[in-house]
């Protein structure tokens, strides 16, 4: 962290020369492009959705009817669909991801940890639409005949597990999302766990702790806020993930009653209907949905990054 400040100070002095000044201003312009884009995304989405918020106000968020024919727009079905599918994903991905991170950072010998870490990174490189294709034709039918059927059989008396599992719907979307956010949770948790000083581990082992006691009683408490950050970043991803979810969730515009129901998330509703939406209120309503998603994911991201920075310092969470 000291390198940039010293070079900046030195460079600042010599920047009085004209070509250097031009270079400095030129590169500065490009740096601010990023800031400009972020600000403009917010402004444009807000400006393009004023119509729907003027007409419906807060009932846009709480209304459960979305009917373009009757010009009634209530976003609740999509908000519920988004939250439920992401909640399923977090419920599955958080424990698996954190345990994997522990395994990679604390337990695995190097020759196991290196290829495993590599594999997890590749998991993140697979395009979303490929996950979607695989989800529709392979994972969905597989889940329907195994996990879904078992869940339905064992817990079918609970209302949310009723319904007919056919491989399409909230639960399948949740499982696909699990795979897609695992790399985020694993990579960042691993980074923050690695950043825990060795003295913490040595002290615990010296007291006669087992490896697992060392991990739960000294490593994890130290890395706690960073691990929370990793999970929240994963959640932010799940909320905004579009293609794979669109392909497996069933695209049904109604409040889901069970986790096997076809549903629609904010992102999938935009993906399936935006290009055919009429100008004016219909488009404005969809951009209004987008604004809700933007505000949610942005706040989650900011909170998550601050949490990760607390443990591992800025720069560990760029994934």
């Amino acid at each position: 962290m000291t390198a940039p400040s010293t070079s900046a100070a030195r460079f600042g002095r010599s920047a009085s020369r004209v070509p250097d000044l031009v270079f400095r201003l030129g590169t500065g312009g490009f740096a601010w492009v990023v800031v400009g884009i972020v600000v403009l995304v917010g402004i444009l989405l807000a400006a393009s959705s004023t119509q729907v918020f003027e007409k419906f106000g807060l009932s846009f968020l709480t209304g459960s009817t979305w009917d373009p024919v009757a010009a009634v727009y209530g976003a609740l079905p999509f908000i519920v669909g988004t939250l439920l599918s992401s909640f399923i994903a977090i419920l599955l991905a958080a424990p698996i991801g954190i345990l994997t991170a522990i395994f990679l950072a604390e337990l695995a010998p190097r020759r196991v940890a290196v290829p495993l870490t590599f594999a997890v990174e590749l998991l993140a490189a697979i395009p979303s639409v490929v996950y979607g294709l695989w989800g529709v034709f392979i994972l969905g039918p597989f889940l329907a005949s195994t996990v879904d059927a078992w869940l339905h059989g064992a817990l079918g008396w609970i209302p949310i597990f009723a319904g007919t599992p056919d491989g399409v719907g909230l639960f399948s979307a949740g499982v696909i999302l699990t795979l897609m956010i695992l790399p985020t949770i694993v990579a960042i948790s691993r980074d923050v766990i690695t950043a825990v000083p060795d003295s913490q581990r040595e002290a615990m082992l010296a007291l006669g702790a087992t490896r697992w006691e060392m991990i739960t009683k000294s490593v994890l408490p130290y890395a706690r806020s960073g691990v929370y950050g990793a999970v929240i970043l994963g959640l932010g991803r799940a909320l905004g993930e579009t293609m794979a979810v669109t392909m497996v969730i069933g695209n049904r515009t109604a409040l889901p009653k069970t986790i096997f129901d076809s549903s629609q998330t904010i992102a999938s509703q935009i993906a399936t209907t935006f290009s055919e939406a009429g100008a004016g209120l219909p488009t404005s309503a969809l951009i209004g949905l987008g604004l809700v998603l933007l505000v949610t994911t942005m706040s989650l991201n900011i909170v998550a990054r601050l949490l990760v920075w607390r443990v591992a310092g800025p720069g560990t969470d760029r994934r």
Binding site: I37, L45, A267, L294, D317
Partner: peptide, 19 residues
């Protein structure tokens, strides 16, 4: 600038499409 780059990475790509 770095913060905005991080925020931009986190914005769902479908919203970039709308933008």
């Amino acid at each position: 600038v770095r913060f905005c780059a991080d925020v931009l990475v986190g914005i769902p790509s479908i919203l970039i499409g709308i933008f």
